[in-house]
Simulated assay, not measured.
Amino acid sequence: MVSTKVKLWTVDDYHRMVETGILTEGDRVELLEGQIIEMNPQLPPHAATTQRAFRYLDRLLETVAYVRMQLPVTLQPRSEPEPDIAVVHIDANEYGDHHPTPNEIFLIIEVADSTLLGDRQQKAPIYAKAGIPDYWILDVNTRQVYVFREPTQAGYQQQETVLAVNMLLAPVAFPNIAISLNQLFLQNLP
């Protein structure tokens, strides 16, 4: 049997691939743990939930944070995911010279319809290793929110599942701001 080595890419390698045209804006990919991963296509419930959650959080947090939708965050040295929502520090340059890094990220939210397993088993460890203090997954199928907190190199130490119906949850960074979980989801989904 022949042994094959896998080439793992760095964020710098990934950026060079974009700069030279090897990867283009039309490529729906993200860098996860050194591997260039094709992103899943979005079905309407995923897209609509992402848009609704973005609009709600953008209005709610407009004076304390930027809310970014489906834009990269840089987790050196080998990950540059594009989370559905990233709540980040306000930046006077609007992140024109870099993508947000872990010390600028308050909260990351992924929206899951068919990606729940990957968001829990692949992305959660990456976000925990990077020290992201607050990671939520919105499960559009069950209207549940998976909340991950207390990051370590081994993963998140605190994990809980919350039903969105009439529940309020405050982000770690903003304990005095109550987010209505019900407002993150479309009302007409089962």
Rank of each mutant, 00 (worst) to 15 (best):
T49H: 00
T50P: 00
R28E: 14
S180F: 00
A128V: 08
V162C: 01
G118K: 13
G21A: 12
P45D: 01
R16H: 13
A53S: 14
H98S: 15
R149M: 03
E150H: 05
T74I: 07
T101R: 15
R120K: 15
Y95H: 11
I105K: 11
T24S: 15
L189D: 06
A92D: 14
A53I: 09
Q183Y: 04
Q76A: 12
Y66P: 00
D58F: 08
V88Q: 04
Q159K: 07
A130Y: 12
E33M: 06
F174D: 00
V145R: 01
R16C: 05
R143W: 03
L163K: 00
E160G: 00
M17P: 11
V111L: 09
D97T: 14
D12E: 15
E25L: 11
R78A: 13
A47P: 00
I85G: 08
R68Y: 02
R78E: 12
A154N: 04
A48W: 00
V29H: 05
Y135T: 06
T4Y: 09
V162T: 02
T161M: 08
A178W: 05
A130F: 12
E33H: 06
L116M: 08
P72W: 09
P175R: 02
L60F: 03
A65C: 08
P77V: 13
A164R: 00
T161N: 01
P100E: 11
I108L: 15
V140C: 08
G118P: 01
D84Q: 11
P102Y: 14
Q76D: 12
D13M: 09
V29L: 07
T152H: 02
T63K: 13
E104P: 02
V2Y: 01
A164E: 03
K123R: 13
F185D: 03
R78H: 14
Y14Q: 10
